[in-house]
């Protein structure tokens, strides 16, 4: 198990590019099938797709096939260039997010010293895609959806950053690999059995991060930009076929991406305590552990989504500015003080 070390530069580059694509598409597909098709159906006392493949597991193929066959429609009054560009912007952002997430000691796409900073910066680019989509569609519903998305993203980027600051203070680094290793080698009052995942010390931060994630991903209860009962489908109203599919992939892939980020920052990332794998073994096991933790966080995200009604735009802003931001500031204060004390 030494392949990762013996690859030449171009080989590992190709591997990483393919890896990013796989890392985007596989979680997105898995999330759609496991959560959207099956978990949601069972929560709603129905079966969901059952015909295509065992338990409808090939339904996804059918859906993708359907979308690819659909007519490519651009509204007459739409801004054609921007309209076409928007979905790629959204999906591209997700690819960039995956770039910085480590899946093992050496199984990473890029090891950035300012990984956290990069993640937070890149993850908010997708709102530009959404805004572009809303504006270029020449549709009032789309426009309102796009504007809502922008307002929402601005409001929730801040608590998200502030929640992560607690982690950064505790780990003393912006490097995601370093954050993982701090959690792996940490000790809880002298006991290092499971390391020290930051969810234990940063539980408030984790909660705020999850809430902000929910809003960033425009999932219920913060799905006002899409709000199918008000805005039809928000910024996606005019999209169909391949471009809609891209938005759809973007939505679920970014859910996976944020789940991966949350797993890295709060759940110990690829680290699996108790087995004593060496680095090379961890390169194989790590991605699996990571996917498991991702699925757990994604489960939380989608559980909220299927359960709650949605907020109103002004109520969402109230929640962000009046409660989450002060709370995360207090969290930072407390973390800083405790860091100095201990």
């Amino acid at each position: 198990m030494t392949f990762a070390l013996e690859l030449s530069y171009w080989q590992s580059t190709i591997l990483r590019i393919v890896g990013v694509l796989v890392a985007v598409l596989i979680p997105a597909g898995t999330l759609v099938y496991v959560f959207l098709f099956k978990m949601m159906s069972h929560m709603q006392s129905r079966l969901g797709p059952m015909e295509a493949g065992p338990h409808g597991s090939l339904q996804l193929m059918a859906e993708v096939g359907k979308f690819l066959q659909k007519e490519d429609i651009v509204p007459t009054k739409a801004d054609r260039t921007l309209f076409t560009l928007a979905p790629y912007l959204v999906v591209g952002t997700v690819l960039l997010v995956y770039l910085a997430v480590p899946f093992g000691p050496d199984a990473y796409f890029a090891d950035l010293d300012t990984g956290v900073f990069y993640l937070l910066a890149v993850s908010s680019v997708s709102v530009i895609g959404v805004l572009v989509a809303g504006w270029a569609s020449a549709n009032k519903y789309s426009l309102m959806g796009g504007l809502r998305a922008a307002g929402q993203l601005i409001a929730y980027e801040l608590p998200m950053v502030l929640a992560v600051v607690g982690v950064v203070i505790q780990a003393g680094s912006l490097n995601l690999q370093h954050i993982v290793s701090v959690q792996a080698h940490g000790e809880i009052f002298g006991w290092g059995g499971i390391g020290n995942p930051f969810i234990l010390t940063q539980i408030v931060g984790f909660g705020i991060f999850l809430l902000a994630t929910q809003a960033e991903l425009t999932q219920t209860p913060f799905d006002m930009p899409i709000a199918e009962s008000e805005l039809v489908a928000g910024y996606m109203t005019e999209y169909s076929g391949m471009r809609f599919l891209l938005f759809f992939i973007g939505e679920f892939a970014s859910a996976g991406a944020f789940a991966a980020v949350a797993a890295t920052l709060f759940l110990g990332g690829w680290w699996l305590p108790g087995f004593g794998f060496d680095n090379n073994a961890m390169n194989i096991v790590g991605p699996l552990v990571m996917v498991g933790k991702m699925m757990f966080v994604a489960f939380l995200i989608f559980w909220f989504r299927f359960t709650y009604p949605r907020f109103r735009e002004d109520q969402l802003q109230t929640l962000a500015w009046k409660y989450l931001i002060p709370l995360s500031l207090v969290n930072i204060m407390a973390t800083a003080v405790l860091k100095v004390v201990f």
Partner: peptide
């Protein structure tokens, strides 16, 4: 009413 407010699950219980 749940669906209109964004909570999709309630209506399936209602239909059931």
């Amino acid at each position: 009413m749940g669906v209109q407010l964004g909570a999709i699950t309630a209506v399936f219980y209602a239909f059931r």
